[in-house]
Amino acid sequence: MKPQAPKRQPYGTLELGLLNVQDLHVAYGKVEVLHGVSLEVAEGEIVALLGSNGAGKTTTLRTLSGLVRLRQGRIVLGGEDITRLPAHKVVASGLGHVPEGRRIFGPLSVEENLRLGGYLLRHDLAEVEKRVHASYALFPRLAERRHQLAGTLSGGEQQMLAIARALMLEPRLLVLDEPSMGLAPKLVFAIFAIIQQIRAKGTSVLLVEQNARQALRIADRAYVLESGRIALSGPASALAADPRVRAAYLGG
């Protein structure tokens, strides 16, 4: 599958991406972990965020979705400033976040997990049901297990559920944190295929991945995060060919 050329939409005289992050500084206590991260995701793009463990990838995503307070910086999503919005309002403005480790609600059933994904639509129950069924169409496996407790699912099924849950609100930007973690190679490919499908339906994707080769294969552009700073950025193909990236993340 060939990457589509990113479509860009003009906002006034400026050309702005869907997501625009400027100079993000984040600290835990006295220890600053992000030292001015800037990045951008255009409409219809898949953007990969690479880096070693501890570089600050997860913190970046958690800051975008409002789970972590930032010290300084600006986050704009589709022209709306979401910098200081609490997490539940960021979701409402169109950012879906599939967290690291999936974080499904284990003691709740698969269907309850999906419905919660549509929590903001709770006043339109018919719409929620419609979207739950759309999820089942996309992931037939979940339909079979709809009444099972989510905690009893296999790792791959849990990841599916986490993605389906985040798609319930039809976000403009889907943020995925290590979706391939702990999965068998074949499932990893399947997950990446699904990410491409998601983009094909019009949702932009920001992807944190440790599996750099796979991520660069489906991404349009990528950033490399090192010790809380963006060290490299560019088109995915260029980064995949970059000797520095190859040495550090692609095994030479």
């Binding site: 979705s65 409002g66 979701v91 976040h97 974080r103 003691p107 709740l108 919660l116």
Partner: peptide, 24 residues
Amino acid sequence: TFIGTAMRALAVDQDAARLMGIDV
């Protein structure tokens, strides 16, 4: 109910609940 399910979800994982748009 949605609110009740949200309560149970909240008891499991507050951050994940926030990501569902739940006003904790």
